[in-house]
Amino acid sequence: MMAIQYWRNKDRYYRLIGVSCTRCGRDFFPPVYRCRKCGSEELKDKEMPKEGKIVTFTRLYETLPGFETQAPLNLAIVELKNGVKVLGQVVDTPEELLKIGAHVRAVFRRIRVDGESGQILYGYKFVVEHVDARRETG
């Protein structure tokens, strides 16, 4: 069941909760059980930064089942401020601002909907910050 899988990972999807190695300080998202840098198993939950920049992106016209109504959709690899790279959709962004290096921030959106009667699954997506908006947020 899609909803159960989502429920188990909801803090990951809702708040970008990953882990941080208590020995070397390296952050990971999605969470890992052993630090990939120093091998330590002493990891604690950590909320990832909500801002970053686009490393690369693509536009999907043919989507996976469940995402048809959102097509065409932009998918990007985003490098967060702590260096962690995550994959996510980029929304509410005019084509001319969607470019490598563009500053983005995470927003809370519907990821997919399980039909008319099933559950609505939420999670993070990204929005490219306009110059004015960046000034407003400091």
């Binding site: 109504t69 959102q70 929304v91 509410d92 927003v107 809370f108 959106r109 519907r110 990821i111 609505i120 939420y122 997506k125």
Partner: peptide
């Protein structure tokens, strides 16, 4: 609201 927005988001 966009197609992926609602009262919750």
């Amino acid at each position: 609201a966009a197609i992926d927005e609602d009262t919750v988001t």
